[in-house]
Every structure is written in structure tokens, then in C-alpha cells.
Amino acid sequence: MSDLQSVIESMRSVQQRLDTSSKRIFGLAKEKAESERRYKIALRQEILKLKSEGHPATLILELAKGKEDIAELRFQRDIARETYKAGLDSMNNLRTEASLLQSILRWQNEMGG
């Protein structure tokens, strides 16, 4: 297989991986938003509960965040956020790889194959 064919095949592979990655990013974005929504709803409910129980206003947020199920939702939110960021980084790496392959292809074409 020639170098040109190898570069073209690599470009096709990168394009397929980019397509897959963009679909996966959409799912990760949705999960990120869902986990944020779940956390904020639960936190709000706990804050209102603590407020109705007469806890000092200065402690309510910390008490709510420290509750085990709220902390777990926050943890899941943070994981979803970081997974989404990692997915974006991965997709950007693929774009860089595609750009490099395009440069190699251009250089090979300029050099006569």
C-alpha cells in the first residue's frame, strides 16, 4: 500500500471516529445536564426542608450539601461534567489528527505523490 493510500485510509478512519465522537458528545452533554438538574432539584428540596425545620440560615447550604444523597448527586454531576470535558478533549484531538493528515496529504501531493 502506498503512503498516499495509507494517509487516505487514516483520514477515513479519523472521520468515522469524529462522527462517532460527535454523537457520543451529544449523549454526554445530555447526561451532564440531567445530572445537574437532578442535583439542583434535590439540593433545593433539602434546603427548603432544613429551612422549615428552623436550622440557622448560615448553616443550611452546608448541611444540605453534606447530606449523603445530595453529596452522591453532586458527585455524579461532577463525574458527568468531567466525562463531558474529556469527550470534548478527545474530539479536539481527533480534529487535530485530521488536520495533520490533511497537511501530510497536501505535502505528498505537492511532492508528486
Rank of each mutant, 00 (worst) to 15 (best):
T20R: 15
K85Y: 10
L94M: 05
S21E: 02
S35F: 05
L101N: 03
N109H: 10
A98N: 08
D78M: 08
K32C: 08
F75L: 10
S35M: 09
I60P: 14
S2V: 02
L4N: 10
R38G: 01
L48Q: 08
L59T: 13
H55P: 01
I60S: 12
E53N: 09
D78N: 13
E72I: 09
L101I: 02
T96C: 10
A42F: 01
L4Y: 14
E72C: 02
G113Q: 04
S52C: 01
S99A: 13
A33G: 00
R81F: 11
Q16E: 03
V7N: 04
Q5K: 13
E34I: 06
E31P: 00
L50D: 05
Q45E: 15
Q15T: 11
E9I: 05
I60N: 06
I47S: 07
L48W: 05
G66W: 05
L61A: 13
I70R: 10
K65R: 15
M1Q: 09
R106M: 06
T58G: 03
K23V: 06
E82P: 00
S13E: 11
D89H: 13
E46F: 00
K30Y: 07
E68R: 15
K32M: 07
Q76T: 08
D78Y: 06
S52I: 03
S22F: 07
K51F: 00
G87S: 08
D69R: 13
L28Y: 04
A42N: 03
G87C: 07
L94R: 06
Q108N: 11
I41M: 06
T96Q: 13
S35W: 02
P56A: 05
I47E: 14
S10I: 00
L88T: 15
E53L: 14
D78K: 15
E82N: 11
K85D: 14
K30H: 11
L59P: 04
G87M: 07
V14I: 09
E68L: 15
L28E: 15
I47M: 15
K49S: 12
L50Y: 00
I70K: 13
K23D: 08
S99N: 11
I60M: 03
M1N: 09
K32N: 03
T58L: 09
T58H: 11
E72F: 07
A29F: 01
E110H: 09
G87H: 10
Q15P: 00
T20G: 10
L100D: 08
S90R: 11
L28M: 14
L100S: 07
I60Q: 07
A64K: 07
G112K: 01
E9S: 11
I41A: 04
E82H: 11
S52V: 00
M11N: 03
E46V: 01
N93A: 15
L43I: 05
I70H: 12
L73Q: 05
S99C: 03
L61D: 12
G87F: 02
I60F: 01
